[in-house]
Design a protein around this nucleic acid. Structure first.
Lengths: 195, 195
DNA sequence: GTCTATACTTTGATAGAC
DNA sequence: GTCTATCAAAGTATAGAC
């Protein structure tokens, strides 16, 4: 019997992890099935016993990453806390997700654009749901007078993109710990919203 | 005689503009010389009368973009103004460059990674010079007590990346004017640095 | 689950005529 | 400066043996 992780066999997961790393480092379009097979020590044809196509792997990576981000962040919108604390927690959460899924983040932010329809649109839809969560909290804060009269959509993009770039420069052995990065983001980004 | 623009003939420039647009929309790796030729209404082989290779075009786009960003921003570091105003002007300038070179920005921020050595390193070097300008001003502000005790390198990345994302969502006919975007960035990002 | 062998497509690039 | 014709390499994917 297969050793399952979620709906996947362990082998499928190994392959997906290798693909994640490769797509993240070289970009999806520049990554070949030959490259991927080589990194796993198998022949290209063997990959097709696990996935039907190159794009299916991209899709699996993207959609799994989406589920992880959503599962962690979306419930925070309705927590019983002051709106400013909720936004703070959501931004810290987003940062944690980016760092935890550093390779997948490149796919989550960029490479998903190489998906073909209808998957591309399906992903875009999920992405909007995620962004909407931040928009909702920003709107609430604005209406309650906690935040100044900011452009909501603009602020959402700015806050998230400041954090998104972390996947490009974060190194686990770098000078800043995750806690320090969180704290700095919180100070740097939340302050600019306050009345 | 050739109609020159800088060191380029007009035709070379036309081709480069088309490449810029294509690489920006589809990504460099996913863009073929056939695609490019088609968008110009010529045959693929004709491109090689103007450029030696696909990578040479990527290089030209990247390095021209670098020159434009540098020429606009670097002199601001030493202007005779309070340090906070200089940073503010540099961030606004960076924003203007991103919007003015929206297609090239995708290459400036991402696609340059597809350059091969030694061009890749040469570009990376220029990029560091650009980042250093912001680091210098942040350091000065910190030493003068205008900015709080921020992590310099972290702040530089955060400020620039918040703005960099603009190339992904900015539309000339969108809801916010460039002036409004500038103003919002200034409020949102500079406030978080102050003591 | 991986292999060999291979089909078919697309790619970057060159040679040489006009 | 653009064309036709063409090449070698690399791409995704399939069939079928083990």
């Amino acid at each position: 019997m297969d050793t399952e992780i979620g709906l996947f066999t362990a082998r499928k997961q190994e392959i997906l992890d290798a693909a994640k790393k490769l797509y993240s480092r070289k970009g999806y379009a520049a990554s070949s099935m030959r490259d991927l097979a080589k990194s796993l020590g198998i022949k290209p044809a063997s990959l097709y016993s696990h996935y039907q196509s190159k794009e299916e792997m991209l899709w699996e990576i993207a959609i799994r990453c989406t589920k992880e981000f959503h599962g962690y962040i979306l419930p925070m919108v309705q927590e019983d806390r002051p709106v400013i604390d909720r936004l703070d927690r959501m931004l810290r959460g987003h940062l944690r997700m980016v760092i935890k899924n550093q390779d997948a983040s490149a796919i989550f932010f960029h490479e998903w654009q190489h998906l073909e329809e209808p998957r591309r649109s399906a992903f875009a839809k999920q992405r909007e749901i995620y962004e909407q969560a931040f928009i909702d909290v920003l709107n609430e804060g604005k209406q309650k007078g906690v935040f100044r009269d900011v452009h909501i959509r603009f602020s959402m993009f700015t806050l998230l993109s400041a954090i998104n770039w972390v996947y490009r420069w974060y190194k686990p052995d770098g000078k800043m710990s995750i806690e320090e990065i969180e704290e700095e983001f919180s100070k740097l980004l939340i302050r600019g919203l306050k009345v």
